[in-house]
């Protein structure tokens, strides 16, 4: 057995102490050691962005780092975004604007967008598209992802967030999305 190293990492506000092999990737530490499987793997070679998390305030591809490199750090993953049943505006945005289909890229996409909105609360469309270049989505064609991020930016700017949490007062009944009529009459 290879030698192991002790590490301490705070993930989503909870501090973990673990013994890990030096070659263990951070993404495997998060997924397999901590059981936080919302962070996905699409390539393991830093190209797809599915594994994006926030580490010490910056978006990183967690397959690019070893777990030992995160020693002493604070990480935020997709599981840490919602609080008390209240979705983060980005999660609301992706839901409202149909920013996901298979959902595989979504956690990484949301974490990259989180990083963008931290630095630039009011990004233009080209800025959003540029900021998400490291995150591949094969399903959506990106148009609704852009709209999702814009939606989140609007929500984050408005002081009072509308109550559209994961569990609304009416239970799980989803709201209708505003938009053009279903089909133009023929």
């Amino acid at each position: 057995m290879a030698t192991t190293h002790p590490i301490t990492v705070t993930v989503n506000g909870k501090t973990h102490h673990n013994e890990v092999e030096p070659r263990l990737l951070l993404v495997h530490y998060i997924r397999d050691t901590l059981g936080l499987t919302g962070t996905h793997i699409g390539c393991n070679t830093s190209q797809c962005g599915a594994c994006t998390i926030i580490l010490d305030g910056e978006a990183v591809k967690s397959c690019t780092l070893f777990a030992v490199q995160a020693n002493g750090s604070e990480a935020l993953t997709i599981e840490g975004l919602a609080h008390d049943g209240q979705l983060h505006p980005l999660q609301q945005g992706f839901w409202e604007e149909h920013g996901l289909q298979c959902g595989y890229c979504t956690p990484g996409m949301i974490m990259s967008a989180y990083d963008l909105l931290q630095h630039n609360p009011d990004p233009s469309e080209p800025e959003i598209r540029h900021a998400l270049e490291g995150n591949l989505c094969r399903c959506t064609g990106y148009q609704n992802i852009v709209k999702s991020v814009q939606h989140a930016a609007r929500l984050m700017k408005s002081e009072s967030l509308p109550d559209q949490g994961y569990e609304t007062q009416e239970g799980h009944r989803p709201a209708l999305v505003e938009g053009p009529e279903a089909v133009p009459s023929s």
Binding site: T39, T77, A82, F94, W95, G103, P107, L176, A182
Partner: peptide, 17 residues
């Protein structure tokens, strides 16, 4: 005929897929 937002999404957007 409505633009109903998806019932699939709540679990996927919180990383619970």
């Amino acid at each position: 005929g409505e633009r109903l937002k998806r019932l699939e999404d709540p679990e996927l957007i919180v990383g619970a897929g």
